[in-house]
């Protein structure tokens, strides 16, 4: 499974982006988006913002689960208290020839299973903690891009841990 994670601010502006792949079950943690898909990721994520706007007023939960789908791309959403959106696009990779029957229940192959949903929730929750740490600094201004390499490595670690 390949993942594209974006944090979108209240002006629909991207504050942070990160691509990665499944690290579990022998995955190498590298995203495998076909070249043209890479451009599409931003577009897909951006267009799912309309749906986020509708969904966010129906549920007080921060984790909004999978809110949109575009062909083989699924978009899950987590909404912070400050209306900043964490969006995770997950796209199962093409199954390799050596895929065994066991792999078919893995997170990497099942974008909408309950296990996947839970794993994504944990990824979002851990990222949220790091997000709150970021915004608590008096020098962080609303809708500012996040450039900290430490934040990036925290997001990467969460991705590796849960996905």
């Amino acid at each position: 499974m390949s993942y594209y994670f974006a944090i979108i601010g209240t002006q629909d502006n991207p504050l942070f982006e990160y691509e990665f792949g499944t690290a579990k079950q022998g995955g190498d943690g590298v995203a495998r988006f076909p070249e043209q898909a890479r451009h599409m990721n931003q577009f897909i994520v951006h267009s799912s913002l309309d749906i986020v706007e509708e969904v966010q007023w129906g549920s007080g939960q921060m984790y909004l689960k999978c809110i949109d789908r575009f062909y083989n791309n699924y978009v899950s959403c987590f909404m912070t208290g400050g209306n900043v959106k964490f969006l995770l696009l997950h796209a199962p990779s093409q199954p390799a020839a050596s895929t065994t029957a066991r792999a078919s229940t893995s997170i990497a192959a099942n974008p909408t299973s309950p296990q996947t949903e839970e794993a994504i929730k944990q990824f979002f929750t851990e990222t949220y903690e790091n997000w709150v740490k970021t915004i608590m600094s008096p020098f962080y201004q609303v809708n500012q891009e996040v450039r900290s390499p430490v934040f990036r490595s925290r997001v990467a670690a969460a991705g590796k841990k849960y996905l």
Partner: peptide, 19 residues
Amino acid sequence: LKLLDLLLYREPARTQLRP
């Protein structure tokens, strides 16, 4: 702005709801 998320983060799961 900061307190909104800090306090929401600290809420127990069942009351960790966006208004």
